[in-house]
Amino acid sequence: MQNDLSHLQDYLPVLVMAFVALGFVVTTMVLTHWLGPKRKTKIKSEAFECGIESQGNARSPFSIKYFLVAILFVLFDVEVIFMYPWAVIFKDLGLFGLLEMFTFMGLMIVGLIYIIKRGALNWD
């Protein structure tokens, strides 16, 4: 029982932050709907009140370039995540740890060079 409670107490800041984040979103959404004036006309409820008129709907297939950027982001995201536990115990690992991270990063950099040389991020 004692262990149980102390274990949960460690996560109290995380819980508080989650509640604050959620509470902020819910409060702002409720307040804006409640306080703001409502005058609904056909023109007001259009997607763009001014500027270019919208054509078609949102369900049109879009370019694969966005997907390429997203998937490359995910790959480098996971790469950085591998560095977090490594950085925590960096001093214990010593030179060996540095070398193994160099091998890892070396292969990632080969990939990065390929991406840049191939012009995968160019928006032509």
Partner: peptide
């Protein structure tokens, strides 16, 4: 890391 490299090259 080799898997990541393969995924990068494949996606591109």
């Amino acid at each position: 890391s080799i898997l990541f490299l393969g995924a990068m090259v494949g996606a591109v």
